[in-house]
Each structure stands twice: as structure tokens, then as C-alpha cells.
């Protein structure tokens, strides 16, 4: 509903800058929401989310520009490639404790970035890949609508995952892995599943990014991007899905709104982030409040 209003509003304003901004917000919304699943809900500190995002973006960019795949075919393929890498990472690190997992994902992030940068024959290195076809040849408004559609589908999947019983198992994994095992659930399996799903969505977000900007370069997938995504999750509220979306909106739109400040812009953004953490350590919407909202029907049902 909100998305439809946004879409109509942007159509009315008809500014390509705004389209770009809106798709950026949606892409980062997906990145923050999927990183929230991994780090906020399941408690696996990922410092390399941009790598899975980048793998998705390059998969779709290369498949469509070099091999003339249809964009709609490359979207799932981008997700699958990123999910495979994520699943492999989780499988290799399944016995490690959280700090080690964080360093492992940091390593994956660096490895992917360096590969994108230096495998010039395949990725065209720092020049990046230009002239990627758009999602559809119709108007930019239609393209934005399609991005919204994918966003919505992913959001629904995440919403269900986070608020289901399965979501409980993931939160329990974050709280005490050994206890989860003692209750008959396999922590290694949960970790692999959560990375596969989270990285699939990050890969999709990468593909959407490639088709919206029609240009990708390694710089979009640096370590600093992983950290920005993490900041969105923390500012929104670790473990809270609506919080992650809000955090993403805030950190993509704020720098744009403050453009007039020129050189002081990032300083102000940094200070605002600092303020949020100081005064709202649980985030814009804390996990507990978010769960309460999504499960408000629970109490009513119990009473009946």
C-alpha cells in the first residue's frame, strides 16, 4: 500500500533522480532486512554482506550483458550464486564461534572485492560493467514498480521467517547455541539455512541494483558497504524486521537530503548515527516491540 502511494507520487513528480533514489532505498532495504536475519535474528555477525550483494550484482550484469540472458532469468540465478557462496561459508564455519564467523565473513568480503577488482578479463576490473540492459524496456516507472514487486516478495518471505516458530529457533541460536542443540535442533543446519536465505536475498538485491543503475563496479561492494548495512540493522533495532527497513531508509535518504550541506554532510550523518546509538540502543523499533506488534493476535487467541 505504502509502496503503491510512493510509486504514484514518484510517477507524478517524474524525476529520474527520485526513481534512482527510490530503487536505492529498496535495494538497501533488502540488504538490511537480510543482514538482520543473519546478524540480528540468528546472531551471526556478518561483516561481508556486501560480498554476496556484489556476487549477485555481477552474476546478473555479466549474464545479461555478455550472454544475453533475460533479466528475469538472471534474478534467480543471482540469488542462487550468492546463496551458494553464503551456504558454503556457513558450512565451512559451522563449528566456529561467533567472532571467528565474523572474521571469516570479513575474509569472504575482501576476497570477493579483490576478485572483482583484479580479474579484469572477466569482470573488467575497476572500470566495471556498463550498458547493462534495464529490467524491462518500458518506462522507468514500470521498472521501479518491478523492483518494488521483488522487494515485496522478499519482504513477505522474511516477515514470515522471522515471525514463525522457525524464527524462534533462530533467536534461540543467537541466545545459546548449546541449549538449542540440547533441545534437539541442529545449530549447524540452522546456520547454513539462514545464510542461504539471507545471501539469496542479498544476491537478488545486487541484481536489482545492477538493473536500476545499469552500471556496476567493485567500489559498490567494498567493506564499507558491509558496515553501512550493519549500521542500518543496528540503528533500526537488531532482530527487528521493520527496524531494518527503517534503518535502511534513514541511511540512504539522509545523505541525499543533506546534500546542500556539502562537505559537512557525512559529518552530520555520522553524528546522527552516533546520537541514535546513544539514545536508542535498542534501535528505532526494538525486536521485542516488533514481535509484539506482529504477534498481537497471540494473546487474543489464548484468551478465547
Amino acid at each position: 500500500m505504502l509502496l503503491a502511494v510512493l510509486w504514484l507520487l514518484l510517477g507524478w513528480l517524474d524525476a529520474s533522480y527520485l526513481y534512482r533514489l527510490a530503487s536505492m532505498a529498496l535495494v538497501f532495504g533488502l540488504l538490511a532486512a537480510s543482514a538482520n536475519l543473519i546478524t540480528g535474528v540468528a546472531g551471526m555477525m556478518t561483516l561481508g554482506h556486501a560480498a554476496f550483494y556484489g556476487v549477485g550484482a555481477y552474476t546478473s550484469a555479466l549474464l545479461s550483458s555478455q550472454y544475453q540472458f533475460s533479466p528475469w532469468l538472471t534474478l534467480p540465478l543471482a540469488g542462487v550464486t550468492a546463496a551458494l557462496l553464503g551456504g558454503l561459508t556457513a558450512w565451512l564455519t559451522r563449528r566456529l564461534v561467533n567472532v571467528h564467523f565474523a572474521v571469516a565473513t570479513l575474509g569472504i568480503g575482501q576476497a570477493v572485492y579483490v576478485t572483482l577488482l583484479n580479474w579484469v578479463d572477466f569482470t573488467r576490473g575497476p572500470m566495471g560493467i556498463t550498458d547493462i540492459a534495464p529490467l524491462s524496456t518500458a518506462s522507468p516507472a514500470i521498472n521501479l514498480g518491478l523492483v518494488m514487486l521483488v522487494f515485496l516478495l522478499c519482504y513477505l518471505v522474511l516477515e514470515r521467517t522471522v515471525h514463525s516458530y522457525y524464527g524462534n529457533a533462530l533467536r534461540a541460536l543467537r541466545e545459546d547455541e548449546q541449549c538449542v542443540a540440547a533441545m534437539g535442533l541442529d545449530p549447524a543446519k540452522l546456520k547454513i539455512q539462514v545464510m542461504v536465505l539471507g545471501c539469496f536475498i542479498a544476491g537478488l538485491a545486487g541484481a536489482l541494483w545492477a538493473y536500476s543503475t545499469r552500471y556496476v563496479s567493485p567500489g559498490d561492494f567494498r567493506f564499507s558497504e558491509s558496515i553501512t548495512i550493519l549500521a542500518m540493522v543496528v540503528i533500526g533495532g537488531l532482530g527487528s524486521l521493520p527496524g531494518a527497513i527503517m534503518g535502511a531508509l534513514l541511511l540512504t535518504l539522509l545523505p541525499e537530503l543533506l546534500r546542500s550541506l556539502g562537505d559537512y554532510r557525512m559529518l552530520v550523518v555520522g553524528s546522527i548515527m552516533f546520537g541514535f546509538i546513544m539514545f536508542l540502543p535498542k534501535g528505532l523499533i526494538g525486536e521485542y516491540s516488533a514481535l509484539r506488534v506482529f504477534r498481537s493476535h497471540l494473546k487474543a487467541l489464548e484468551q478465547s
Binding site: 521467517t161 515471525h163 514463525s164 516458530y165 524462534n168 541449549c179 535442533l185
Partner: peptide
Amino acid sequence: VSIGALSQQRFGWRALWSRQQ
């Protein structure tokens, strides 16, 4: 407590992925 209930009763994916209640 639901964590204890989850593993014993093997409901499969549909139930695991359903909303509480």
C-alpha cells in the same frame, strides 16, 4: 518453551514456518 516443542514434534516445514497459533 516452544523451542523444546519444535524438535520433538516433527511437523515438517509448513508448521515450522507458520505463524504462532
